[in-house]
């Protein structure tokens, strides 16, 4: 298969005295689709931030595309952050936010030739009609699409998504996953997606990473979604576990 694009060795991250990630060891081959699942506070976002170079590990090493995180170009990685309370007072339009994906800086007066690719990608994620609305008037799901467009426009080798389908309606959710799948096959990109949606993880990913401070399982969906892995990761399994197995019988 492809070369390893993300290599993590004995990685620890602490916040003051709280240890968020402990002794992670992981190799992710290029072109894979990894779903990261785990309970709230498991360290999933922290894990992504280490990949993005926003957090330095307290111990251990991480190599991405053969480089240290601070040697990477901004264009190597695309990032869709976890839906958060946007600064609603900042005057901006979706085309501007998406253009930061292309330029890695905030745009001044946008030129026509820069607007064209931005409009195309916004159309693609189903947000073409939003391009010039005030950013602070968008709904959570609309905002999520704009952030996805921002990440895709730079055509990154590695796409990092933190719960990208949160707040998106059911039809829209399928659209979003299709866009991600298409992007992956078109560019042979590596996808790292945090999700609470086990079904999406099961159907779209080729690897599932179960995380709860430690890596508890890292395997194909069939081998990762076992009662044992789920119990180790979540403490208990709950009724959603049944749904996965129902889904599995359909396949």
């Amino acid at each position: 298969m492809n070369d390893i694009v993300i290599e993590i060795k004995n990685l620890f991250v602490n916040f003051a005295r709280y240890s968020a990630l402990e002794n992670l060891n992981l190799s992710i081959p290029g072109g894979s689709f990894v779903s990261v699942v785990g309970p709230n506070g498991a360290g999933k976002t922290t894990f992504l931030k280490v990949i993005l170079g926003l957090l330095k590990p307290n111990q251990g090493s991480i190599t991405i595309l053969g480089k240290q995180t601070d040697e990477l170009s901004p264009f190597d990685l695309g990032y869709v952050p976890q839906v958060k309370t946007l600064d609603r007072s900042f005057p901006a339009m979706p085309i501007e936010l998406v253009s930061t994906g292309l330029k890695a800086k905030w745009p001044g007066k946008m030129k026509q030739k820069d607007k064209k690719p931005v409009m195309e990608i916004l159309e693609k994620v189903g947000a073409g009609n939003l391009a010039k609305r005030p950013l602070n008037k968008l709904s959570g799901g609309e905002l999520q699409r704009v952030y996805l467009a921002r990440a895709l426009i730079r055509k990154p080798k590695i796409l990092v998504l933190d719960e990208p389908a949160t707040g998106i309606d059911w039809i829209g959710e399928n659209d979003i996953h299709k866009i991600i799948d298409d992007y992956k096959s078109e560019f042979n990109a590596t996808i790292i997606m945090v999700t609470h949606d086990w079904e999406a993880a099961y159907h779209h990913a080729d690897h599932v990473l179960m995380l709860n401070r430690h890596i508890l399982c890292f395997d194909t969906p069939d081998k990762a979604f076992t009662e044992q892995c789920l119990r180790q990761t979540f403490g208990h399994v709950g009724h959603r576990h049944e749904m996965i197995f129902v889904g599995r019988h359909h396949d």
């Binding site: 170079g53 170009s73 901004p74 990032y79 900042f90 930061t100 800086k105 905030w106």
Partner: peptide, 16 residues
């Protein structure tokens, strides 16, 4: 750069 980090410090940091 100032505009970008005024909008979102973290996003600006991911862009180095």
């Amino acid at each position: 750069r100032w505009a970008y980090s005024t909008f979102d410090r973290e996003l600006a940091s991911t862009d180095r």
